[in-house]
Design a protein around this nucleic acid. Structure first.
Lengths: 246, 246
DNA sequence: GTAAATTTGTTCGTATGTATG
DNA sequence: GCATACATACGAACAAATTTA
């Protein structure tokens, strides 16, 4: 019989959500094929050692995500196919990292002026509250959304960035128009998170799916930070490849 | 001012936990260096738009994880260095991933013999059905579980691998005993997934949390594949860092 | 050196959400 | 649907330790 994952009652995560995640994991992993019936609520309640109300709430959440479908009197069924994991297009590491946009390809989906908070001031080496330009871009390959990226620049150094970028579609070109001839990346940091609602929508991901998060910092030729980028990659359709020969 | 990461009040995840994750991410990303003071509770409460109690609970959780330390009257400080695992040309990725275990530190949590399926046969360049040794290891840093890794070797080349590894705690040493003096990594592929139940348990992760998945292939000095590893990293407490020095 | 301002620690109470039966 | 128990979140204090003026 299935070993119940420990349900923690004071972990700050509601029990119904812990059950929801467990069921979702089992569906995605293929334990329940598409169209198959889920065990009855009473059985699930017994398995998890909780009240039937609680299981119902987990099922309701999965239903509203389109993963399950409940039919009156018949049962609850798996509506969506388990997500496949194609060995994605071999992405050039440098292109993603944010040296990106050597050639026009990114789509501008938003921009704004904002003040530097502690994190950004630290990364860009500017005073707290310095005006920054925030640029949101979406990267698509073969009409499939792949990457959502948020880049930030010191406003004073690239005052016309948004207009220049919108016209050229290239960060490199927009920086050149601001007098920054070239730049190099200092480092990239890679981690993973659950996609935020907005990113999930942009990337066409189901809620609760993970994204690779790549944070990178670019320096101008004098070694001063010029661009800080936080990119979110649809993890189910992409792999980062690090070659061993360098 | 900082734009609050959206705090979802009906997601089944307590607000204090969402704040905890946000703070942890900022610490790991290096916004707060080791030993530096965190903003006062009142300021954080204002930033997140919550009561001071709520922030305190998030801080308490991070304190109990050993990430923060609070001194009455002085402030709250970052106790542990942000965990980051550097990879790149200079630093040997293999030390982390599974070429890993230069020094004894990995714990053997399981091993088995199995036949090569299509994927493994392809990676290791052996015939379908060739006998392989599968080794499951757990890697811990400061008593915090960090990495679960599954490595596979062609059985014929390392017949006593499990015993040798169990004794030395070092993959490198176990390979040497099999006559493989040295090896190098060919490449590493990085993606992200939702942790499987067993991995989540091993890593002490809540259900539904993401893991970084790193697949790497090591070659012996003649360029033949010797080891294929699939490592799962607790994404909330680790970052891969790729340096940019060309 | 003392007083004031800061910052964490603690204790009430109240309201709402979650889970059970 | 309802009653109960517990966890979560907010608000207003006040206490204790430390830093600053």
């Amino acid at each position: 019989m299935t070993k119940n994952p420990v349900l923690d009652r004071s972990a700050g995560i509601a029990i119904w959500r812990q059950i929801m995640e467990t069921l979702k994991a089992e569906i995605v992993s293929g334990a329940f094929a598409e169209g198959r019936r889920l065990p009855p609520e009473a059985e699930l309640a017994a398995r998890f050692g909780v009240n039937r109300h609680t299981v119902r709430r987990a099922i309701a959440a999965l239903t509203s995500e389109g993963i399950l479908r409940a039919d009156q009197g018949r049962g609850t069924f798996v509506a969506s196919a388990p997500l496949s994991y194609p060995i994605g297009p071999r992405t050039r590491f440098s292109e993603i990292m944010s040296g990106q946009d050597r050639a026009p390809s990114g789509r501008l989906i938003g921009s704004a002026l904002e003040e530097a908070d502690a994190l950004l001031a630290n990364q860009l080496d500017v005073a707290l509250g310095t005006m920054l330009i925030r640029v949101e871009t979406l990267r698509v390959a073969d009409s499939v959304p792949m990457i959502v990226a948020t880049s930030r620049f010191e406003h004073a150094r690239v005052p016309n960035f948004v207009a220049d970028y919108a016209e050229s579609g290239s960060i490199t070109e927009a920086l050149r128009l601001a007098g920054i001839e070239d730049y190099r990346r200092k480092e990239s940091r890679i981690t993973a998170e659950i996609a935020e609602a907005r990113d999930a929508q942009q990337l066409g991901l189901a809620l609760g799916q993970p994204v690779l998060v790549v944070e990178s910092l670019n320096l101008d030729m004098e070694g001063r930070p010029i661009q800080y980028t936080r990119a979110r990659l649809a993890a189910d359709r992409m792999q980062l490849v690090v070659n061993g020969d360098k």
